[in-house]
């Protein structure tokens, strides 16, 4: 019984975090502000779903089933890379358009 309550709580928490992230993605005004909310879904949302999966399958098979933990690890490796690439691309394109952004660090 407590297993199902824990799994349900984790799943609903993950859904609410993802919903908040999506609302932020729609409502914030500038692109560099909009870069932040998706991190809420990809960190807390993914951790909660992975924890729910681990708890549920461990209780189902009466042994530790930990492979769902690979998902947060993969996200922790890949997401910083895509975030930096998208931020670099946005900064570069805004600079090309003559937007109000900080200058490059080194003039070459």
């Amino acid at each position: 019984m407590w297993v199902e309550a824990a799994v349900a709580t984790l799943l609903v928490a993950s859904g609410l975090a993802t919903l908040v992230a999506a609302i932020g993605l729609v409502r914030l005004t500038s692109f560099f502000q909009r870069m932040h909310p998706p991190a809420l879904a990809s960190t807390f949302g993914a951790w909660a779903v992975a924890a729910a999966s681990i708890v549920y399958f461990s209780a189902l098979e009466s042994r530790p089933v930990l492979h769902a933990w690979v998902i947060p690890i993969v996200l922790a490796i890949t997401l910083p890379v895509t975030t930096v690439l998208i931020a670099r691309a946005a900064l570069f394109r805004k600079r090309q358009r003559g937007g109000d952004v900080p200058p490059p660090l080194h003039e070459s």
Binding site: S14, T18, L25, P38, G45, A46, V49, A50, I71, I86
Partner: peptide, 17 residues
């Protein structure tokens, strides 16, 4: 691009659920 990346993550979470 950012919205597409986010949609990939949400789809992955839905498949896990």
């Amino acid at each position: 691009v950012l919205a597409l990346d986010f949609m990939y993550i949400v789809g992955m979470l839905a498949v896990l659920a």
